[in-house]
Design a protein around this nucleic acid. Structure first.
Length: 304
DNA sequence: CGGTACGCCTGAAGGC
DNA sequence: TGCCTTCAGGCGTACC
């Protein structure tokens, strides 16, 4: 399930393939995967891609419309036409099982079912460079068009600081996090507190920080707060170096799986021995999510 | 407003 | 073998 390191890996693999390229054709097999404020917008057809950006688990393709060669008289452009030349954005959520795959012309995807959208990427000559596929069997993901960069940034301002960045300790979202009486595990899954942490990396980060997942966020010491924020960034960076975690579905844009799952300390290992101390790992449902921790390394009360 | 419960959706895995 | 149940979980919505 794609969390921040997986989405960032996709972004990095796609960026060199897409920057400066024009989208010449779009095939939308399922209209209902498109939502958001501009759900009727075209999905960057005849736009040239200028950037791939990410915040938390969200990936955005930024693109500029092609000039209409027939609209030579700039003075007579309507307001709508001028706005249409602004940078637009298409946000892609991968949800649980979403994949963005880049394929060379005529190449067949390893699994061709549940492909909901296909973008044809124009090359420099008459032939296409390839196609970008959005595949998502479970359809927890989706496409969210925004009419401008400002609209995208407004939407992204609802997210907390990105988990890969150095923790901005004075950020208002973090101040809210440390006031919360929720279990720290539940709070870490809230994208408006910190953006990019999902169930895997919440458990992994709390293990690294040696914090018991059910403890209320507001009861953590200053040292524990710092340890958690640093652990989140560390685990994200480590996972990114392995190309993310592949449990089942996740692949990068070239179809390659990640490797970080082999280095998970706690996620998916309930009942198995802790890799640090050998104690059997505990597991229970917390905030509707399976949560795994080491009762010895992450005691109920913080370390003295 | 803070917090919780639930539904969406498909495929893998396990029980019988 | 095959049918059934359970589980996985990001996120929007409903609700207290």
């Amino acid at each position: 399930m794609p969390e921040l390191p997986e989405v960032e890996t996709v972004r990095r693999t796609l960026e060199p393939l897409l920057l400066g390229r024009r989208i010449s054709r779009i095939l939308l097999a399922r209209r209902d995967i498109v939502s958001g404020p501009a759900r009727s917008a075209n999905l960057l057809l005849q736009h040239t891609i200028t950037a791939l950006e990410r915040k938390g688990k969200q990936l955005a393709i930024l693109a500029r419309p092609e000039h209409d060669p027939h609209a030579q008289d700039e003075q007579r452009e309507s307001r709508g036409q001028r706005e249409s030349r602004d940078l637009r954005a298409l946000v892609i959520h991968l949800g649980m099982t979403g994949q963005l795959l880049f394929l060379a012309p005529r190449a067949q995807p390893p699994q061709s079912d549940h492909i909901h959208a296909t973008w044809t990427i124009a090359g420099t000559g008459p032939r296409a460079l390839g196609t970008l596929l959005f595949r998502d069997p479970r359809r927890f993901g989706g496409l969210f068009p925004y009419p401008s960069r400002a609209a995208l940034e407004k939407a992204w301002s609802a997210l907390g600081p990105d988990a890969l960045e150095p923790p901005p300790h004075d950020h208002p979202s973090l101040a809210r996090l440390w006031r919360s009486r929720r279990a720290i595990k539940a709070a870490l899954l809230d994208q408006s507190c910190i953006a990019g942490v999902g169930n895997i990396y919440a458990d992994e980060a709390l293990f690294l920080a040696r914090v018991h997942p059910p403890r209320p966020a507001a009861r953590l010491s200053a040292g524990e707060r710092v340890a958690i924020l640093n652990a989140i960034r560390d685990v994200m960076r480590l996972s990114l170096r392995s190309g993310g975690s592949t449990l089942r579905d996740y692949r990068n844009a070239s179809g390659a799986p990640g490797d970080f799952q082999s280095r998970h300390q706690v996620y998916g290992r309930g009942g198995e021995p802790c890799r640090r101390c050998g104690q059997l790992l505990s597991s229970k449902t917390l905030a509707q999510r399976t949560t795994v921790w080491c009762p010895n390394c992450q005691p109920r009360r913080g370390s003295p």
